[in-house]
């Protein structure tokens, strides 16, 4: 059933435009972290079959984990038939675990003289460059970030640092392509969301939240929402996909936002049209 999602999202690692930003928005009632695993699996597993015909073009993934440790993602992926440890050993997956790796003096402890994100970017850069040395054939790197709201915490609430960090990540060259970025962000942290502010109130209103800024620069926005009727065991929520640019699909597919309902299973995610059967 996940073909439905693939069709709407149009995710093809080989056609992914360099430097594109895919934004996943979620809320407290409906967590969007399952989509990160979905992307991870698709990016790591999909080009495998067509590796030879595409001239050895593979996709590497750099996973920047700020909210959960490696074991969490590994367990989930293993149930879906994707062994992260073997990908990590083969170099296709670079996992930066900022949760388990938490000694005194790490990114989480205070060192505000130098921006925490600057240090983090240096690590990301180093990892991408190191992989570039060992590369064979044409490659792309996608950076997955879980989650960008925690980057904001890390930066002490300075939005510009987060935006710069993401911009630098998108500007990183791996081989002849720039890195793509998939980032999760908590949309409900924006307290002005859903309020239609009058135009002239712009001067008094606080600075636009990180979510709005990211939305502006994103190529594709995937929004995860709970059902308006409340929590249910059969349908866990709905996702809507909006393509802002042609990063993932051609212009004729860019139509009105598509909404699908989803049900999460241990081994997969089921999608269906609203009201349809899984």
């Amino acid at each position: 059933m996940s073909e439905m999602m693939e069709e709407i999202l149009g995710l093809d690692a080989r056609k992914l435009l360099p430097g594109s930003l895919i934004l996943i928005e979620d809320s407290v009632a409906a967590k969007g972290a399952f989509l990160l695993n979905y992307f991870l699996k698709k990016l790591l597993a999909a080009p495998h079959a067509s590796e030879e015909e595409a001239g050895g073009g593979t996709t590497r993934v750099l996973f920047l984990a700020l909210s959960e440790p490696f074991s969490h993602y590994n367990r989930i992926s293993r149930k879906q038939g994707c062994n992260l440890i073997s990908y990590r050993n083969s170099g296709r997956l670079i996992f930066l675990d900022m949760v388990s790796d938490n000694p005194p003096g790490s990114v989480w402890t205070k060192g505000l003289k130098q921006s925490a994100l600057f240090g983090l970017y240096e690590r990301v850069n180093e990892c991408v460059k190191r992989q570039e040395m060992q590369k064979s054939g044409e490659e792309r790197t996608v950076i997955i970030i879980d989650d960008a709201s925690l980057l904001e915490v890390l930066a002490g609430g300075v939005q510009n640092e987060v935006l710069s960090f993401l911009h630098y990540c998108r500007a990183l060259y791996s081989g002849s392509h720039r890195c793509g970025v998939v980032a999760l962000v908590h949309a409900d942290t924006d307290s002005n969301r859903g309020l239609s502010l009058p135009v002239d109130a712009g001067a008094q209103s606080p600075a636009a939240a990180l979510v709005q800024e990211l939305e502006h620069s994103a190529d594709v926005i995937v929004t995860v929402d709970p059902l308006s009727t409340g929590l249910a065991t059969d349908v866990h929520g709905q996702v809507s996909v909006v393509h802002w640019t042609d990063a993932l699909c051609s212009a004729e597919f860019r139509r009105a936002p598509c909404t699908l309902q989803f049900k999460l299973l241990e081994s997969s995610v089921l999608f269906s049209h609203p009201g349809g059967k899984f």
């Binding site: 700020l66 440790p69 938490n102 908590h186 942290t189």
Partner: peptide
């Protein structure tokens, strides 16, 4: 967040009570 990271890799649990109304709505959601 540091506390949560510490807990994840250790044998400990934490319970925090907090008056959410004293925080700004955006902070409370965070």
């Amino acid at each position: 967040q540091s506390l949560k990271s510490l807990l994840r890799v250790s044998n400990a649990v934490a319970l925090i009570t907090f008056p959410a109304t004293l925080l700004t709505p955006s902070m409370a959601i965070r």
